[in-house]
Design a protein around this nucleic acid. Sequence first.
DNA 1: AATCCTGGAGTTTTT
DNA 2: CTCCAGGATT
Length: 673
Amino acid sequence: MTQLNPRQKEAVLYIDGPCLVLAGAGSGKTSVITRKIAYLIEQCDIPARHIAALTFTNKAAREMKERASKLVKGSASRGLTVSTFHNLGLNIIRREHKSLGFKPGFSIFDSEDARSLLKDLMMKDGDLDSDHLDLVQHQISNWKNDLIIPARALSVAQSPGEQAIALIYQRYNQALRAYNAVDFDDLILIPVELFQTNAEVLQRWQRKIRYLLVDEYQDTNSSQYLLVQLIVGNRGALTVVGDDDQSIYAWRGARPENMSLLKQDYPSLRVIKLEQNYRSTSRILRVANHLIANNPHDFDKALWSEMGLGDPIRVLRCKNEDAEAERVATEILTQRLRKQYKFRDFAILYRGNHQARLLEMKLQQHQIPYKISGGSSFFAKTEIKDVMAYLRLIVNPDDDNAFLRIINTPRRQIGTSTLEALGGYASERHISLFAALDELGLQSRIPEKNLERLQRFAHWIKQVTRNCGGDRPVDAIREMLNDIDYEGWLHQNSASSKAAEKRMENVFYLVESLQKTIDKNSSDEDEGEESRIEDAVAKLVLRDMMERQEEEDLSDQVQLMTLHASKGLEFPHVFMVGMEEELLPHRNSIEDNNIEEERRLTYVGITRAQRTLTMTLAGKRKQFGEMSETTPSRFLDELPVDDVEWEGFGEQSPEKNLAKGEETLANLLNLFD
DNA sequence: AATCCTGGAGTTTTT
DNA sequence: CTCCAGGATT
């Protein structure tokens, strides 16, 4: 698609003011962004280092950067910023860390670290029991995303409960400061606060970023939008691309209304719709349009394509979940044989990860190769968390969380009572655990033997840190892993030696990534002296620079993933399973009256399909131990009758019966059972 | 430190 | 039912 259509062209060429590109599914939005970047560099003479494009995932950023560099002649794209919001935030904090009061090498707490910190804080005074842990964490994150500082949270708290959470919020932020650490939300929030209070710094960044592009704009939260506004200022040098119908992350803070807000905040906003779809058949788009028409819209949009009418959408009702999974497996086998499709042409999409279990079983039984994406990530693995904790402690000795994670990994015979004494001493003096180890006052608190062990550890870590300051920091890390015989520790703590080897491989992979990141950073002339292990560790926490071998492209496997994970992808033949009330829409969304987002999720699933789409459901499903009747998803009722083939619903299509009046699909089905 | 027991929940997930 | 966390027990 080297030739842009008129709408796309308009979106690329319009640079006289803020621009909102309403990019429907499969309408070539990435082409628009990358072509616009090329246009800005080559035709508008804006140097690449003054252009920034923001995405939500590292993967998207990587792809976009690659595509943009290919479009731009020679090396003119050098210095271009294509990064995630969080990565940009990290860069800002790093560059401005002095005025923000952070020491270099500050830590980034992931959700798990944040959780364990909160747990500690809540234990100390039994205000709240640990049941509330998730609630508290969520609330604090919400506050941060909404730019509400602890003091404000305290003053607007509606109930004693909220008041208590606000207090924890306050202490949580103080603790982060003490640990020289920030959490993920801070990566956006802190730059925003900095820009709001420091005009000089803001101006510097505004001069740096002369044109800003934002991808998946409907997924921005309030603080992210504010960051965008601050950077853009009144210059209007902004292009955002998004699709309100594909907003499926409201539950984690996304504010799809940011799309409409844009129009208010920038009255001169130019809105450009991309409605031509280059992915799917007309049938599929008709079904998608018909379904999403049931949602209210600020911007109307109807997808169309020139890909031909295509096959009708099939909706298959199976006896139970087992039959459903079985049916999907046999469908894949027969279609592959009859039509010469590849396994990789098929995707099976579901609402919840647990739905993959049965499917996985059936695919195995039929010897169908498959790949499940999502699930436990590389960084959730204990060996990776362990090594990361070592890295973090080396880079930031005040990171108590990292300290506690590794102090006994491997065993150093340092018990809880010793650590409690150390912790007490440290918190009285408002210093970190590691810093406390240097103090003489400890002798009265901790038995000599234990203190000796602690100090031996501290001494050793300091040595490793010094070694890391040399030419070959990664060698120092390798040596450190040797010192502690981490491989031996893994063998002791793994089910089999095979598992241990696998885990050690992961560790080596991490170390290699560290090396790569350091190499890459020092070749990016931009950074200068500070491009050392500190930056590399921070980037790794953000999961940047982790190029997992994309074996999926090479091998012929059926793709299994959640509907959420499928956003942005496309497949020739798509199965959407579990099209039932309580599953899709999910039970909780029904309770919270969140049907619209579930509808969008369904819309996302439908628009993944290029050529055929098959929806399945089970008449009965085992849940929570007992078999129960299911109700077909209300979204099935919202599909256009003429484009759908029904199977397993009895003689008549369900719509005809529905049209009669009160009769629902549910009680109709009861007649046939 | 390892294991067992009990209770409660049971979506989606990136950074 | 099945999985987890957390606590108690050994």
